[in-house]
Design a protein around this nucleic acid. Structure first.
Lengths: 196, 196
DNA sequence: TCAAAACATGAATTATGATTCATGTTTCAT
DNA sequence: ATGAAACATGAATCATAATTCATGTTTTGA
């Protein structure tokens, strides 16, 4: 229950990481409730009690995974959209990159969504900080008149919602072998929606 | 564990309904995991064991609530969009009605979203049947050339995702006293996105 | 009116799994 | 090389509820 301190030795860092990765797999696969510490440590190849050397509770690993996912998503999207020379192109590249990212990390993405119920605070942080950055981008584009004037915050949430749901439907539920086509079809809506 | 049969008497019907409504309140408030049968029956004003006369498990009431929500949502949206004389107007009326509905039934809406993790089957049914109807509407509008040609299925999911997320952000999280304004702002995106 | 069918009760039973802890083992700075 | 700090172990402890069931009470149909 007391907050464990960061590992001091090389062995410690390795173990902690093993457990974190195992937690990602197990919780991503089974969901928070059905995932047990026993299975996580079995998967990590350590004893049950070792878990509590590095994490104070099941909720805590979960929280860390959500935060980690926040950093990854922001990094991936920032990276993917840098080459864009217009807001609309950034939207296009961002949507594709997001869908690809979900496809590459389905477990992590499921965890983020489950956070809504397991750790609402972490969930809110994830999307709020994302939306904030998004809003800024859209505002800038509005001022440059690259896109039609409009409520940037509402747009940010609307566009995030679109991407989230498409990711869930076409990536997590499978049923689509051509993500780029999905992104193209959705982008048609976005482009006309934002264009001056 | 054995599937309870429908109640035969008037008293039975009443009790079952009391418990169902109590479950809606408690699960909607606390979430599936934290809601206990004890609290549900306390809230319903009956004994603990009575629950199992009408439902075989906690999952079962949950499933029934999700299904109920499916009917309600479809009914409300069908109702709200009938007066529309164009697809775009239907989109506008539908979005407003949806946000208002979420505002009126936050607990029920939370339950639907939690179904993704508690009862994926029910969750999938809810959105798939919704999307199917939506797709049909959009397709019809495409053929009538009321809206620009495009992939109706992808559009259906994209638009649902938008509405879902706006509902979560501006209705469930509060922070907006003017839902109609939100709907208007979002509709600007939708209108230009779909317009011929 | 009366016996069967329905329904109601809540204490007792179970199941599950998170968390702790007493007892080793390993690492590392000196 | 060595002792203190770190780390590892897994059986035992705890807590929490879901579910059952033996025992009443109420309703209903003939």
């Amino acid at each position: 229950m007391n907050a464990p301190t960061k590992p001091k030795t090389k062995r410690g860092k390795t173990r902690r990481e093993q457990i974190l990765r195992a937690a990602e797999r197990v919780i991503g696969q089974r969901g928070f409730t059905d995932a047990s510490i026993a299975e996580i440590t079995r998967e990590a190849g350590t004893a049950l009690g070792t878990f509590y050397i590095y994490f104070s509770s099941k909720e805590e690993v979960f929280r860390e995974l959500v935060a980690e996912m926040g950093h990854m998503t922001r990094a991936v999207l920032a990276e993917a959209t840098t080459p864009a020379d217009s807001r609309l192109q950034a939207e296009y590249l961002g949507l594709k990159a997001f869908l690809r990212f979900v496809a590459d990390h389905p477990a992590l993405y499921r965890i983020v969504e489950e956070a809504r119920f397991v750790d609402p605070e972490a969930y809110k942080d994830y999307f709020t900080s994302f939306a904030e950055a998004y809003r800024r981008q859209l505002n800038r584009a509005t001022q440059t008149e690259t896109i039609r004037p409009g409520n940037a915050e509402v747009r940010a949430w609307a566009l995030m919602g679109m991407a989230k749901t498409l990711g869930e439907r076409y990536v997590l539920w499978g049923e689509s072998d051509d993500l780029d086509q999905i992104a193209d079809d959705a982008f048609d809506l976005i482009r006309h929606g934002l264009e001056p």
